[in-house]
């Protein structure tokens, strides 16, 4: 397959990339290319130009600073999956990154490109929403941070404005009383999420749940919180019965016409089995608390 023609500009800094985007308003930003290049080849997108930020090394890092793990937009899925910091402090994120595609895809695909693309079948949006991530964008009218709940606006749509570039993602760090996990029903060929469930739990010293965050992806246009599940978990001891009972409320978050279906898995099927993946994510997250 051949992409439509476009011009190409390689930026050596974020400022240069922002200037190039201002100069070429129809341009798209190219990072690892693992979301954008397939779109171009399928001719679902035909930008006049690409601004390649892939060589801006300052955007490739995972750093902990004052209660936040700041992840540069160019950090690859392989780097996320193998990061000791993420594995211990944002386990669900490392876990989900390790489930994306296959090793060669994880070597090139980036967290920034992934979330900017906002594919509903992607893994990271649900996890980042679950963990309360903030998205740093620059360009346009200056720097700003966008909360996950505001960032993912819908099917392949984010709050990144015209002329703006996503530079990093901040994930709040948690202490050892918190456990998080991601469980995924992967499409057998593409490895995209048919259903993805992310869970983060906090327990007090008695092992009682004080805070729960549960987010679903894969089967909805943008990540959704399963608030009924969250509320049912708080105050429980996160034993198997409590998790099973709370997971049964998953459908309340999916009681809409928005649930996605395709030839592989219908909306009805996804809606009815989603609770299984919520239950698995919760069980793993509970086991990781403390």
């Amino acid at each position: 397959m051949f992409a439509p023609q476009f011009d190409y500009y390689r930026a050596s800094s974020v400022a240069e990339a922002a200037a190039l985007l201002a100069e070429h308003p129809e341009a798209k930003v190219l990072a690892g290319g693992h979301s954008l290049i397939p779109l171009l080849k399928l001719r679902l997108a035909a930008p006049s130009a690409l601004v390649d930020i892939g060589r801006i090394d300052s955007l490739r890092s995972i750093l902990e600073e004052s209660g936040t793990i700041e992840i540069g937009a160019l950090t690859t899925h392989a780097e996320l999956a193998s990061s000791e910091l993420l594995r211990s402090r944002a386990t669900a994120l490392a876990e989900a990154a390790g489930m994306i595609g296959d090793p060669a895809v994880r070597n090139r695909g980036t967290i920034g490109g992934n979330v900017a693309h906002a594919d509903p079948a992607s893994d990271l949006p649900a996890v980042l929403a679950c963990l309360g991530a903030e998205f740093r964008v620059t360009g346009g009218d200056g720097d700003r941070s966008v909360r996950a709940s505001d960032f993912f606006e819908g099917l392949m749509s984010t709050a990144i404005g015209e002329g703006e570039i996503l530079t990093s993602i901040g994930v709040p760090t948690v202490d050892s009383a918190c456990g998080s996990a991601y469980a995924k029903f992967a499409h057998p060929a593409s490895r995209y999420a048919v259903i993805g469930a992310a869970a983060a739990l906090v327990v007090d010293e008695d092992g009682s749940c004080t805070c729960a965050s549960v987010t679903l992806g894969g089967l909805v246009p943008a990540p959704v919180r399963a608030t009924a599940v969250e509320e049912a978990l708080v105050g429980t001891r996160l034993d198997a019965a409590a998790i099973a009972s709370a997971s049964g409320l998953t459908g309340e978050a999916l009681d809409t016409d928005d649930v996605l279906g395709d030839v592989y898995a219908s909306a009805e099927y996804r809606r009815s089995v989603a609770q299984v993946w919520v239950q698995r994510a919760l069980s793993s997250a509970a086991a990781r608390c403390g």
Binding site: M1, Y8, R10, L30, G33, H34, I37, P38, K41, D52, G54, G101, D102, P103, A104, V105, N107, R108, A189, S190
Partner: peptide
């Protein structure tokens, strides 16, 4: 497959495996 699923286009870029059907030549400059 030409859609980064089948892996028959796998090469090493700077020693690391990548699917060359999902990489522009200019990215490997």
């Amino acid at each position: 497959c030409d859609t980064s699923q089948c892996g028959s286009c796998t090469v090493l870029i700077d020693g690391v495996a990548a699917k060359s059907c999902t990489c522009l030549a200019v990215q490997a400059d």
